[in-house]
Computed example of a mutant assay.
Amino acid sequence: MSKNQRAIECYENNEYDAALALFRAALSESRNVQSLTNLAWIYYHEEGNVEGAMKLLQEALNLNPASHFPYSLLGEILVREERWAEGAAVLLRSIAIETSKEACNNLAVAKYHLGEWDQAAALFLQSAEPSDYAMYSHIYCLIKMGRMNEAKHMLHAFSEQDEHFAGEVHVAELYVELQCFSEAVHWFKKSWNTYYKSPDWVCRYIYALVQMNAMQAAIEITEQCIQLKQDDIEEEQAELCEEEWTESDQAVYLKQLETEKQEYTHILAKISEGYVPPLDFMTSVNSVCYLFGCSRHGHSEYKD
């Protein structure tokens, strides 16, 4: 059994220190694509050593690997580090070797942040499953480009029954962007008893209700959320501080709660003055195992 195989075995048996030592020993024995990539994966995902992982991966790329693994992993890291152009360049090389959903999604993220929404939309679609977050991101890109009818058609196809359903709030948020307020309210209502109530989406729910002239419902939800925040404030004020939760931590949290309470307090007045609560859209970088020789994921050892 090779050092890499023993390292993988230890890693899968939760013998992390032994696995790390063996991955390092494999690298000392031979600085090849496999040993460089596998240790880089461990450095990044287990050690949080971004610079160390990138250095190893760049060395692996200098060997012109035939596998997309080192390209996909380096591209993922660069995108997470918000180095959009560099990440996009590396991920394009990954996809040229072998197309994967993860690389397509992560390239889409980079393209989105570079303002290349058309390419981002196509790549999100390529990586998407029915009703999942990548599909949500694809539709948002369509909206950004003004392709409203196409976006609406695809959003209508979202189903809670799909395995990777993005969530009711995300669907509602897109309907707000499309100014389909009745549909938005329908999905916001579905989420009301299951989602944590935060101003980023609740204020958009209130906005949708106002646009439908459902003022009483908007007022009731606003008052309910103000009371919820007041309850949270009083509950936190009664909490005793300790080593894990200091007075400083508590002060920061109380300030956050008060800020959120004030958002609810003023939201109806702001909407009446023309304010539109913005969509807090966030891209999502995907990750997967890139360990050569990982039997759990059916990865063979590296071959040129």
Rank of each mutant, 00 (worst) to 15 (best):
M212Q: 15
Q126S: 14
E51S: 13
L91H: 06
H138K: 05
V288R: 14
N4P: 00
V285D: 05
I42S: 01
L123M: 08
Q58L: 06
Y205P: 00
S127Q: 09
K189W: 02
K255R: 11
Y195M: 08
L279Y: 10
E86G: 04
E150D: 15
A120I: 09
N14P: 00
F165I: 04
E51I: 04
L57E: 11
Y140D: 06
V285Y: 07
V202R: 04
K255H: 08
D162P: 08
A122Q: 15
V50Q: 11
M282E: 14
S182Y: 14
D304A: 14
R6Q: 13
I267M: 02
A121D: 07
A25I: 00
A103M: 04
K152Y: 15
Q216L: 12
A88H: 06
H45Q: 14
D17R: 10
E260V: 01
S28W: 00
W117A: 00
Q179A: 13
N193W: 06
K3G: 00
G274H: 04
C203Q: 07
R80M: 13
Y302Q: 03
L279A: 01
T99A: 12
Y195K: 10
E59W: 03
L254N: 08
V210M: 15
Q179W: 04
M54Q: 15
A238D: 14
A128H: 04
V288I: 09
L123Q: 03
K190N: 05
E98I: 01
Y195W: 06
N13F: 06
L174H: 11
V176R: 05
A85H: 09
S28P: 00
I97C: 03
Y43I: 01
G115Q: 09
Y290P: 01
Y264I: 01
E239L: 12
A121H: 07
L91Y: 08
S287P: 00
L91W: 11
D118E: 15
E168H: 15
E273M: 06
D280N: 12
H170L: 14
E76Y: 05
I95G: 06
H266M: 00
T37S: 11
A218C: 09
E102C: 03
M154S: 10
V79W: 12
D249E: 12
G293M: 01
Q5R: 09
E59S: 10
S131H: 07
A18R: 13
A60P: 09
L291F: 13
A269K: 10
M1W: 00
E239H: 11
L178V: 10
M282H: 12
C104M: 11
N106R: 10
E82L: 11
M212K: 13
H45G: 02
Y71F: 15
N13Q: 12
L279S: 03
V185Y: 06
Y136Q: 11
